[in-house]
Nucleic acid binder design. Structure first.
Lengths: 252, 252
DNA sequence: CGATCTGTTGACAATGCTCAACGTTCGTGG
DNA sequence: CCACGAACGTTGAGCATTGTCAACAGATCG
């Protein structure tokens, strides 16, 4: 049923980052580290600042993995060998149910981490929507860092909880909202996650099929929902793969 | 809209949990259920074996909280002051969305823990479905135990991940299944969680409204779905508040 | 006994899915 | 260079499922 079965690109996993061990301690420092996601800074192998955030672990990544559109990043059921940071691109996290229907739990974008809630085996399949660049940290490295630093453990919990919140928000949307409302919420969330200013137009990397499988709708209904939102002036679409949310529209 | 706004009973939170004196009372003898195994075994305050599991923390609980049907246990948005173990009864975890519609994320039963994924504030409202008995552990105690014992932290992560899996399973159900299928899956899961043998009949403590708000359906549709399942021989219902899942039914 | 609450069932309308047709874009091959 | 087919998005028509409104039955309670 599902069309996107393309697989290719480098399949990393273990090789990449069997980095050395960042040891111990839980000295408290600053709260929010700046260092968002930079252009790869070669890690100085000798100096090892204690990682205070999950993100810091990726600073030791020796290189970046590239994925072509529609290629598989991790496969549902496979052993977890690493955790991934999305440097750029969009990833869809999905499963196929017994009847062959696909459910996309979420689209993960730049800055998101794959594998925070996957203990032993991946509980979803991750595929590249567009061109995706990842950095990875070996599972063993991660475990060491976690036991050494309770703060990291806490951040992990926080991140998983955020996933939970998102899922429950999605649950609410599926349970109560009509197609156009679901779509609008999705578009709003998507642009928010991407840090869009609301001024400029946001690119929609995924196809209608992907959106449909995310919102639990058919592609036709998604298409109609787009039309509804456009006609009612809630969104603006220069092309079918870019959009902008229009201000709340002063209703009566 | 939502009718179940009843709030009453002992609302513990700070006082109770902080270990000292249970100020207000929780006597309140019989309501429905004759307190399954509510007899508290007095914890030997002096000896404290290192807790290896989250459950162990509750062994030190000095008493048990009782809740009448439809009473509020914790309120969405309130500060988290404790974590709760369900000793008996069924709890519904829900939120009310801006439009006033209620979504029940899950029904928690005996052995479940409330508050594993709520860091600072409760992100849902918990209400007693039937007579509920809880044990609690103060947030501060929990934090101490967590920092002292990485195993506990890991168990916490595992439990949150289980929640995530359940939510995603629910997501899948809402996105792809028709009413009767959703209901059947719910009934199956519910009896499984309760450890039902499959032989005997399972009591349905919650009303149709609750089930509807859990499955994202109207009460009428839930009622019709029950009829469908009964007529097709997939379930058996001696009364409208007890059921039994019938074997897979040998199809062609 | 009447009032109320819950669950069930029916009739009708609204929403969304399926099937189908059509336009556009893109890549391939004549 | 153009024709063709494939893939994708859009739109329409008919049908299935579900929500809404309404009536009714049984249980509980005063």
């Amino acid at each position: 049923m599902t069309d996107s079965t393309a697989k290719s690109s480098t399949s990393p996993d273990l090789d990449a980052v069997t980095g050395q061990e960042p040891t111990h301690e839980n000295l408290y420092a600053e709260q929010k580290s700046p260092a968002r996601h930079a252009t790869r800074t070669p890690p100085p192998a000798h100096e090892k600042p204690e990682p205070q955030h999950l993100r810091d672990l990726f600073d030791n990544a020796t290189f970046e993995h590239h994925y072509q559109p529609d290629s598989t990043i991790v496969l549902h059921g496979d052993r977890v060998q690493a955790m991934y940071l999305i440097v750029s691109g969009t990833v869809r996290c999905c499963t196929i149910d017994p009847e062959g229907r696909r459910q996309i739990f979420r689209f993960a974008q730049k800055g998101a981490v794959l594998g925070v809630a996957d203990i032993d085996k991946w509980h979803f399949t991750a595929e590249a929507v567009d061109h995706v660049i990842l950095r990875s940290v070996a599972q063993s490295t991660l475990r060491q860092a976690l036991t050494a630093n309770p703060r990291l453990c806490q951040e992990l919990v926080t991140r998983i909880c955020e996933l939970l919140r998102k899922d429950e928000r999605q649950l609410l949307s599926l349970a109560h909202n009509k197609a156009p409302e679901r779509l609008l919420q999705f578009l709003t969330d998507f642009s928010a996650e991407r840090g869009a200013s609301g001024k400029s137009h946001v690119a929609l990397p995924m196809c209608r099929r992907d959106i449909a499988d995310h919102l639990g709708l058919s592609i036709e209904t998604v298409s109609r929902a787009f039309s509804t939102l456009k006609n009612s002036g809630q969104i603006e679409m220069p092309t079918f793969e870019s959009y902008r949310i229009c201000p709340p529209a002063p209703v009566a």
